[in-house]
Computed example of a mutant assay.
Amino acid sequence: MDRTESTFSGSSRAALIDHDIAHIARVMPVSLRGDFGGPILPPAYWRKRLTALIESGQLAPAQLRKVDSLLLQLDQTASTPPPAWERFAPAATGPFEPTDAPKKVRSA
């Protein structure tokens, strides 16, 4: 997300960074948990967003601590194996067919 730095005052820039950090803190865990297909956005995406915030050089100490905390959460999530139900989920091979449906009989 590119922003023109010359158009924001110091307090506006700090508020934008606060909003960005709050958004990442709210959305990252849900995105990493994902659904049956895996994460919605991969850890590399979130690491890139958080690293960009740090490299901007615009973070206040409290903001830096929050970003560092989010990076630690990201590392912990990446090092935790997926739950058993996710590791052993069968791959979808074709359309689902109910087992109690009557069988089609071919007439000769």
Score class of each variant (00 low, 15 high):
64 L>Q: 15
77 T>N: 13
66 K>A: 13
47 R>L: 03
43 P>A: 14
76 Q>R: 14
62 A>H: 07
21 I>H: 04
73 Q>D: 15
47 R>I: 01
31 S>T: 03
58 Q>N: 09
63 Q>A: 02
70 L>D: 03
66 K>M: 06
35 D>Q: 11
47 R>Q: 12
44 A>C: 01
85 W>H: 15
38 G>D: 03
99 T>Q: 11
66 K>E: 14
3 R>K: 06
18 D>P: 01
97 E>R: 15
63 Q>G: 04
85 W>N: 12
81 P>D: 13
20 D>A: 15
77 T>L: 10
96 F>W: 15
75 D>T: 07
25 A>N: 03
92 A>N: 06
28 M>F: 04
89 A>D: 12
34 G>V: 04
34 G>A: 07
7 T>K: 05
68 D>P: 00
6 S>M: 01
44 A>K: 08
3 R>Y: 12
57 G>V: 01
63 Q>M: 08
82 P>W: 15
44 A>L: 06
10 G>C: 01
105 V>S: 05
11 S>A: 12
72 L>G: 03
14 A>I: 00
16 L>V: 00
106 R>H: 09
34 G>D: 04
69 S>F: 13
60 A>Y: 09
65 R>K: 14
105 V>C: 01
15 A>M: 05
32 L>K: 06
80 T>H: 07
60 A>E: 13
28 M>H: 02
77 T>K: 10
103 K>F: 08
95 P>Q: 14
91 A>R: 15
81 P>V: 07
63 Q>S: 08
88 F>S: 06
81 P>M: 09
108 A>E: 09
50 L>I: 03
70 L>M: 10
108 A>F: 07
69 S>H: 11
23 H>Y: 13
42 P>M: 05
34 G>S: 05
52 A>G: 07
58 Q>I: 00
14 A>W: 01
67 V>R: 02
91 A>M: 09
88 F>Y: 15
40 I>T: 11
27 V>I: 14
42 P>K: 09
66 K>R: 15
33 R>H: 09
5 E>C: 00
30 V>E: 10
84 A>W: 11
64 L>M: 12
72 L>I: 03
28 M>D: 02
75 D>I: 02
56 S>N: 03
58 Q>S: 13
22 A>C: 01
35 D>W: 10
68 D>F: 04
49 R>W: 02
48 K>I: 00
107 S>M: 05
83 P>Q: 09
61 P>E: 07
8 F>W: 13
42 P>Y: 07
39 P>C: 09
20 D>Y: 11
40 I>K: 03
107 S>Y: 13
15 A>E: 08
100 D>W: 14
2 D>G: 02
40 I>E: 10
63 Q>H: 07
104 K>P: 01
96 F>C: 06
76 Q>K: 14
87 R>H: 04
41 L>Y: 12
53 L>F: 06
104 K>E: 14
14 A>Q: 10
100 D>P: 00
34 G>W: 09
57 G>R: 06
32 L>N: 08
24 I>L: 08
100 D>Q: 11
4 T>E: 10
77 T>E: 12
11 S>I: 01
71 L>E: 06
59 L>K: 05
53 L>D: 01
81 P>W: 12
97 E>N: 05
68 D>S: 15
35 D>C: 07
86 E>R: 15
79 S>T: 08
17 I>L: 14
106 R>A: 13
